[in-house]
Amino acid sequence: MIPPSFEYLTPSNISDAVALLQKHGDEAKILAGGHSLIPAMRLRLAEPGYLIDISGIGGLDYIQEESGQLRIGAMTCEAALEESEIVQSKYPLLLDTAKMIADPSVRNMATVGGNLAHGDPANDHPATMLALRASVVAEGPNGTREIKIDDFFPDFFTTALAEDEILTEIRIPSPPSASGGAYLKIERKVGDYAAAAVACQLNIDSSGSIENIGLGLTNVGSTPIRASSAEELLKGKKPDENMLAEAGRLAAADSEPMEDLRGSAEYKRALVNELTQRAIKLSLQRAEGSR
C-alpha cells in the first residue's frame, strides 16, 4: 500500500501555513501526527496534492493550566497527555481517554488537535471534549476565533473549521473542587475504535449532589453526541440507582448508532445505557475522592 505522490510543504509559522491553505484550497491537507491521514493515503482513500506539515511550527505543543483553563496545544501528542502531571492529577477523563486511544506507539505521534480536526465521530477526544465543555481555537487569515465544542462537529467527518483555518489550541475549563470524570469504552480489542464509549465529567456540591455534568458519546452517531437529556436529568441531583438507570436510558435514546461489524444499533444503545451509568458512578467516586 503505497501513498500517491504529493508536494510536501513545511511552513515555519501559522500564518504561512494558513497562506498555503488559501493557496491550495481543497487540494491541501494539514499533516499533524498523520495517523489518520497517512493510512488513508496508503489506502488511496485520500489523495491530497499538498501536505502542509505543521510539526515544524513552534509553540503548538504544550499543556498549561492558567486562569481557570487547561490549554492544550494542538500538536500535543496523546502520550504527552498520559505523561502530564496536571492531567494525571486533575483531569481523569482526559487521562482515561488518552490511554484508550489506539496504542502507545500511535499515541506518540497522534495529536489531540488531529484527533478533533479529523472530524471522525469514532475518535475518542470529541466526546471527551463535549463532556469537558471545551472549546477550540482556530487560526485563519483573519486571525483567531474560539469555537465551542458543541458547534465544532456539524456533520459526518465535517468540522466547523473553514478550509483556510487551522486548529491551534484546545481550551478546557478547569474543574472546580470535588470534580470527577471517566471515559469508558467497549472495543473489540485494544486499539480498536469504540463499539460505544461514554465520557463523563461532573462536580458535586457539599451534599454530594451533582452541580454540573457533561456527557459525551463516541461512535454512536454521524457526529460525536452530547447526551443532553441525561445531563438535564442529573443536574442538581444526587442520583440513586433508579435515576442512574433513567440517565442511561436517556443517553441511549440520544444516541443514533448504525449497525456495523461492531454490532447492531440496539446493542450499541444498550452499551451506551450501561456505560453511561458506570461512567457517572465512577465519576462520582472520583469526585468524592478529590474533595
Binding site: 473489540r188 480489542k189 485494544v190 486499539g191 480498536d192 461489524l261
Partner: peptide, 15 residues
C-alpha cells in the same frame, strides 16, 4: 468486509 488488520482482529497481549 474486514480485509485489513483494523477489522481482522488478531489478539494483542492484553486480550
Amino acid at each position: 468486509l474486514n480485509g485489513n488488520f483494523m477489522d481482522y482482529l488478531l489478539p494483542t497481549a492484553v486480550e
